[in-house]
């Protein structure tokens, strides 16, 4: 375990952070070790290892079909929802393997939240109920005033509070696409995850909504570790501190070509393929 000292040095100290409201001020560190993945007999990831330090934003970039979404879904055990899906390797959350049989899947998914490509609020629930859906689903009891505070805090963190504070009882499906996606972010944040995975969260959004989501990522990374898959190179450069470039050669499983600080990946890539990709020469 070489990660521990580095991780600790990356944890920012928040003397000026508001002491109230915030339940935990630090995200978890994720570490994937030798992760391979299959769909049936088709291998899609080959021994991928990546450290995702606490309280940083890690962007996963690469052309379509290189396995980055699969990798992301392995990080909170969504991969196994596909019946034929298999995997090997370890995913360590603060040093504990989330695939250890002793860990409950539901607890892992609660600690590692996910925002999906297509906004997916629960259409039959109101905006407020959508925010607290995670508590209800995990059987977490909460008092009425705590609930209202949590709704406001989560929506504020997702940058949606001002727009919806007067219409919390309206159905979540009445919002625009960009607002729905921020509602989904608020819903994920409401269960106080240590890590938030985002699978191309802006690919279905207009530029203004995209900017709002990126601002949200900036604001929440102090409390949550973020891993984001994106096809948008500028977005990766804007929001992330660390970047991993995935590539799958024709007929071979996907792998990380290069990973490191975002400034390095974009400014001074070691691998020529990375350079070609970040400069838009292929993919």
């Amino acid at each position: 375990m070489t990660t521990a000292p580095e991780v600790n040095s990356l944890i920012p100290t928040y003397t000026d952070a508001p002491a109230t409201d915030v339940v935990h001020v630090r995200g978890g560190s994720l570490n994937a070790v030798g992760v391979s993945a299959w769909f049936g007999s088709n291998k899609v990831l080959e021994k991928v290892s990546l450290e995702m330090p606490a309280n940083t934003v890690t962007a996963l970039i690469g052309p379509s079909g290189c396995g980055k979404s699969t990798f992301l879904r392995i990080l909170n055990r969504m991969h196994e929802l596909v019946p034929s899906a298999k995997l090997s390797g370890q995913v360590l959350l603060d040093g504990d393997d989330i695939y250890d049989p002793g860990h409950r899947i539901t607890e892992t998914r609660k600690r590692i939240g996910m925002v999906f490509q297509k906004p997916n609020p629960f259409p039959a629930m109101s905006i407020a109920d959508n925010v607290t859906a995670g508590l209800k689903l995990t059987g977490t009891k909460i008092g009425k005033s705590d609930r209202e505070a949590l709704i406001e805090r989560s929506l504020t963190r997702a940058g949606l509070w001002k727009e919806v504070k007067d219409r919390l009882k309206e159905p979540g499906s009445a919002l625009s696409g960009g607002q729905q996606q921020r509602l989904c972010i608020a819903r994920s944040l409401a269960v106080e995850p240590e890590v938030l995975l985002m699978d191309e969260p802006c690919s279905a959004l207009d530029p203004t909504s995209t900017r709002r989501v990126e601002e949200t990522i900036h604001e929440i990374k102090d409390q949550v570790t973020v891993v984001i898959v994106t096809h948008n190179m500028q977005q990766a450069a804007r929001v992330s501190q660390q970047c991993a470039f995935f590539l799958a050669q024709l007929g071979t499983p996907g792998d990380i070509v290069e990973a490191g600080p975002t400034t390095e990946i974009f400014g001074n890539p070691r691998d020529p393929r990375t350079e070609d990709y970040v400069n838009g020469r292929f993919g």
Binding site: R109, F116, F122, A133, L137, T138
Partner: peptide, 26 residues
């Protein structure tokens, strides 16, 4: 029942039965 909503519920830490109650049955 939409895959997106199913995954949303499971991703929040719901059990399979919790997902069925909140997504599939409604």
């Amino acid at each position: 029942a939409p895959v997106g909503e199913r995954e949303a519920a499971l991703g929040l830490g719901a059990t399979r039965w919790g997902m069925i109650r909140s997504v599939v049955l409604p």
